[in-house]
């Protein structure tokens, strides 16, 4: 990441209270990176707040696409404008910009195409609900079984991508709950994936997109798409 243009993509949906804090935090820790806010058709003042920050690019999506569609907009932007690296930092303030250097160091050390910031590799592990833990464990086994990869935090969206990953994911990126599926996608394209332990913050405001009611659906959908992606031979 030392030599090369880096884009920070902030997918944001109704994050008017968090967005400026997140941008400020990125500026303080990563002064050389460009910032793109993808406003996923928020109904609050997210876009207006983001535009107050100088030098930040804001894409306003005319329809709500969900996290996958929003992040893919970032991949397309990064691809079209020749960025070498892209980092996803969520608009809710959960991902810490100061931890990006760990992702970059892991990418340099392992030569991988994508580095996932994992909440479960580090000692100061992020506290999460037991339901989510069960889900993450199931994914861990699935990745082990289907790909032979050890991924401790397949649902983490805090990731660093290089140019090769950007080009693949600009073309194919799942619409909803994309993170676990994207691992399979990159692996099937022959790209290398690494993980590094990072700290994350509990959300400042707003709610997780995965509610108790939606989590069985989430598990079923993601498991299905992981298995289907594995069986796919033509892209």
């Amino acid at each position: 990441m030392e030599n090369g243009k880096t884009l920070i993509v902030i997918p944001a949906y109704n994050e008017q209270n968090n967005i400026l804090g997140v941008i400020g935090d990125i500026r303080a820790n990563l002064p050389d990176a460009d910032i793109l806010v993808v406003n996923d058709c928020s109904v609050d003042a997210t876009a207006k707040m983001a535009r107050q920050a100088a030098g930040v690019q804001v894409v306003d999506l005319p329809c709500n696409l969900g996290i996958g569609g929003a992040v893919q907009t970032g991949f397309k932007y990064a691809r079209d404008r020749g960025y070498d690296y892209m980092v996803q930092i969520d608009g809710d303030g959960q991902h810490l910009p100061r931890e990006v250097s760990k992702l970059a160091a892991a990418m340099a050390a392992t030569g991988s195409d994508m580095v996932i910031g994992s909440r479960f590799l580090d000692v100061r592990s992020f506290r999460t609900s037991w339901q989510r833990r069960i889900g993450i464990n199931i994914f861990r086994r699935l990745f082990r079984m289907l790909l032979g990869l050890t991924i401790t935090d397949g649902t983490s969206g805090f990731r660093l991508y290089n140019r090769r990953s950007i080009e693949v994911l600009a073309r194919f990126y799942p619409s909803d709950y994309p993170e676990p599926d994207a691992i399979v996608l990159l692996h099937k394209h022959g790209l290398a994936i690494a993980e590094v332990g990072v700290a994350m913050r509990a959300r400042e405001s707003g709610h997780s997109s995965i509610t108790a009611l939606k989590s069985p659906y989430y598990m079923a959908k993601v498991t299905l798409s992981i298995i289907l992606s594995c069986s796919r031979t033509r892209w």
Partner: peptide, 10 residues
Amino acid sequence: LTQELGLTKL
């Protein structure tokens, strides 16, 4: 189309 429209507007 939605993504393309957003990027084109920018």
